[in-house]
Design a protein around this nucleic acid. Structure first.
Lengths: 254, 254
DNA sequence: CAGTGGTCTAGACCACACT
DNA sequence: GTGTGGTCTAGACCACTGT
């Protein structure tokens, strides 16, 4: 029985499909294996391709499958744990952080960012683009916003752009005293540029981690907006940033 | 220019639609307002309903819209900040935590949970169901797993189930010394029961927060799996668990 | 080139919330 | 009942990846 309720409400087909496929993945497939193509699978289950796709989409969202246009659908490896909360009390770009500087520029930030930085809406800020690798895969991109007065000695910087300039900006930032930081995680969808870099389609689900860095005096000295692939990443926080346990969240009905 | 690339690759319709709708939401609609129904909107934009729905789905994922069957589509309020990282070093159920006990039982946990708890795969554990309100809304459900030996004095408990039993289990847990905790956040889809409680459809995207609680000696004394509505919640961590800034992540193309 | 997943259409019916 | 969003179909074409 399991459920005490008589099934007066029929389960949607795609939901039932997902259940069946999940069980098949657990028992009959191994990581990296290629599934039959969507048309074959749909025919095999006797549903329209769109319905089959609805099930596959959910499984991809849950990190069980990986789909690539022109290639096929493969069984995804378990999500990788990515430490987000351990670099306690260091500025971005400090000795051992996991990010690689990519580029840097000076521009007017979006209104929402200006509000977070407590700068005027038209004040220019330095931006630093960074990316993060984990297990040989690019898992996140970041856009750092740094108000000009956080890095005053940068007016006569020689490198006009590129990683060199990014490193110079971060180096200046290190000179400040870091008083604290503030983090938020929410669901978003990948912007076109982030998507390209993360090897995903535009709009694919991402975990957006927004971090505010406070300098001595409580002033917001930098704001980081990091975009993590939601399908492959598990963000870890806290004391032991272990990469252990489970591959559970095929959170699913009975 | 912005992009140096000539647009040789046409933007998908649903993506362009999303852009247009986002701008309309920002300028012409206010929170709570009801949008025209899907058939009208699709006709107005000259696309099939399925295409329109693809755009609406993304906007809902980003927390901009709220759709309810039988009712309609409304403009969603900004996401609420929900503090997740502040109850540092207290057991679940301590004085001022944000959770309300719902029920409790004793069962055999899923294999993945047993692994996290470092118990045998067939050892029974206590489970505690809790739910969390924020701003008058149910935003999360939680399932706590507590190995029997974490709460030894519970054999002769009188309440067989319900909130009373849940509170009793948590009370016993308080007697242990908490040594540390461990958190992970990942994307999942709502199980049928969680979905019902969160007033969402099964499979809707959720943020799954897994917390391990370590007792003195490094033993895992409890494991919490909390399921937050991804559409309405922004999980906050760190020093100042402020509920300020931005409503940005309509992360979107140019 | 052939084969894959991604987008899109025009329709149908269902489950649900209001009145 | 009426109107809403949710599910499903059977097709078509497009964009991409490999050979």
């Amino acid at each position: 029985m399991g459920t005490t309720q008589l099934e007066s409400v029929p389960e949607p087909k795609y939901w039932h499909l997902k259940t069946v496929l999940t069980e098949a993945l657990d028992s009959e497939f191994s990581v990296g294996e290629i599934l039959p193509n969507e048309r074959d699978l749909a025919a095999r289950f006797g549903v329209a391709r769109a319905t089959l796709r609805q099930a596959l989409e959910q499984l991809e969202l849950e990190g069980r499958l990986q789909r690539r246009r022109g290639v096929g659908t493969t069984v995804a490896p378990p999500r990788v744990g990515v430490a987000v909360g351990t670099e306690q009390h260091t500025w971005p770009g400090a000795a051992q952080d996991a990010w690689q500087p990519v580029d840097s520029a000076q521009e007017t930030p979006p209104a929402a960012v200006a509000a977070g930085l407590e700068t005027g809406p038209d004040d220019a800020v330095h931006t630093v683009r960074r990316s993060r690798m984990s297990h040989g895969q690019l898992v996140a991109t970041e856009l750092l916003y740094i108000p000009a007065d956080s890095v005053p000695d940068l007016t006569a910087i020689d490198a006009p752009s590129g990683p060199a300039r990014a490193r110079a900006v971060l180096r200046e930032l290190q000179r400040l005293d870091l008083e604290g930081q503030d983090r938020a995680v929410e669901l978003g969808s990948a912007r076109a540029d982030d998507a390209r870099e993360l090897d995903r389609l535009p709009g694919s689900p991402v975990l957006v981690v927004t971090t505010r860095f406070f300098a001595r005096g409580g002033r917001t000295a930098a704001l980081s907006v990091a975009t993590y692939r939601a399908d492959t990443c598990r963000l870890t926080f806290g004391d032991s940033a272990g990469v252990e346990i489970h591959h559970d969240p095929e959170r699913q009905a009975s």
